[in-house]
Design a protein around this nucleic acid. Structure first.
Length: 407
DNA sequence: TCTGGGGTCCTAGGACCC
DNA sequence: TCTGGGGTCCTAGGACCC
């Protein structure tokens, strides 16, 4: 791979906020926090630049956000709404860039290798200038055609491109030219390196390391800090080609297999009653198996997740023959719950994860099913009108609102 | 930082097999 | 049965990302 900054990372600025503003123009120019209404249990998923100086950031609890920015407009997250907008952005990007990979709902990796000749015009001093100008045009087109602001970073590796896109915000383009990687990275806090989270940051801090420049000076060795240093050096070398297959980020019924599917719910008030807990579990099983059937997949592994009110969390899983049947998953999930739940402790969160996915119908039919898969009529209605178009009589949805007040 | 919900990837130990 | 070595699969937990 030639040493030129031809890998890009495109990131949609305050994506959820931007979409909400498209749908409700009265939000434009005003402080907006997406994640839930005031008083909800939840976290900030996106916030506008107006509230950042107040200390609001994504991942923060809504309670804290309300305290810091009481005058902001609080909007619930509407996950089903954003994917379509991201897909439109991707379609535009593909007009300019031959290789585009979805990293998340608001992030794409772009490979511009081999594109210099395509976009060169008289007066271009080098390919870097050509590509940078092209990317600016692309970003402007996204803004004009979708109304969504975005930023693009360019570099010799994905990590550099990603860090550059962060630096380019809002609505900027930043190219880190070949050979300038160290200068770009040197002064950045360690947390900016993809893969370094709060835990690693704290460990580095204890070692007296705050910047990536300091980290880069740590020699190879067996320690975890040395491991992070070598990861940093790796990140600054040219990346290989982008992954062959794109990830399904928008339509969950897109690809059948790989990865996992899960649904979980945190309860407003932790649950203690067995019937209520089982009802909540059943409702999760119903939803997650429905999603799996929509993808025409079956799961070999079923995992229960249980979080107690003190936030301690356990997972219990079992692997067996593939299934996507609600009753079969329910049997396993229920058994896992009854076998692991210490009844003395109240349940804050329940989750069901399906993994080890295979395409439906792969399993050798040793015993043909005694009756057709239940639920197909319900599935059909849901496919047309959405999951919530039907509620099963036997399923009582978990409480989402507090009863009357604290007890 | 009293901490949502959807994911991915990694690690480490144990079972089991040859 | 004092006990090798390599491989794979399963389980549980945890870090990290958006």
């Amino acid at each position: 791979m030639p040493l030129a900054p031809r890998l890009g990372c495109l990131d949609l600025d305050t994506f959820f906020v931007s979409v909400e503003r498209l749908l409700d123009p009265s939000l434009v120019g005003r402080p907006v926090i997406v994640g839930g209404r005031k008083g909800d249990r939840g976290v900030v998923t996106s916030c506008s630049y107006e509230v950042r100086p107040l200390g609001v950031h994504s991942g923060m609890s809504l309670v804290d956000a309300v305290r810091l920015a009481p005058d902001a407009i609080f909007v619930p997250t509407r996950r089903d709404t954003y994917g379509g907008h991201a897909a439109r952005v991707k379609a535009i990007v593909e007009r300019w860039c031959p290789v585009v990979r979805t990293a998340s709902i608001d992030e794409f990796y772009l490979d511009f290798h081999g594109c210099d000749g395509l976009y060169a015009t008289a007066g271009d001093v080098d390919g870097d200038a050509t590509i940078e100008r092209t990317v600016r045009e692309m970003r402007d087109a996204i803004q004009v055609e979708t109304g969504l602001p975005s930023s693009v970073g360019l570099g010799i590796s994905r990590a550099i491109a990603k860090m550059a896109s962060g630096r380019a915000k809002p609505a900027g383009v930043l190219m880190v030219r070949a050979g300038e990687e160290w200068r770009f990275v040197e002064g950045l806090p360690v947390r900016k390196l993809p893969g370094i989270g709060p835990v690693a940051e704290a460990e580095l801090q204890r070692a007296g390391i705050a910047t990536l420049g300091q980290l880069s000076a740590v020699p190879d060795g067996p320690s975890r800090v040395a491991g992070m240093a070598s990861r940093l050096r790796e990140a600054l070398r040219p990346s290989g080609p982008l992954p062959e297959h794109d990830r399904p980020a928008f339509q969950e019924h897109d690809e059948t297999t790989d990865g996992s599917l899960s649904n979980e719910r945190t309860f407003f008030a932790a649950l203690g009653d067995e019937t209520t807990v089982l009802d909540a579990l059943r409702s999760l099983v119903e939803r997650v198996t429905w999603r799996l059937r929509r993808r025409s997949g079956e799961a070999r592994t079923i995992t229960l997740k249980l979080r107690y009110s003190d936030f301690s969390t356990i997972t219990r899983g079992r692997t067996g023959p593939p299934t996507n049947g609600e009753d079969e998953v329910w049997r396993v999930a229920r058994q896992l719950l009854l076998g692991s739940w210490s009844r003395r402790r109240r349940v804050r969160l329940l989750g069901v994860q399906l993994s080890n996915l295979v395409p439906a119908g792969t399993q050798l039919a040793l015993f043909p099913p005694a009756r057709p898969r239940a639920g197909s009529a319900i599935d059909a209605v849901r496919a047309r009108f959405g999951y919530d178009a039907i509620r099963m009589g036997a399923v009582v949805a978990p409480r989402e609102e507090p009863e009357a007040g604290p007890r």
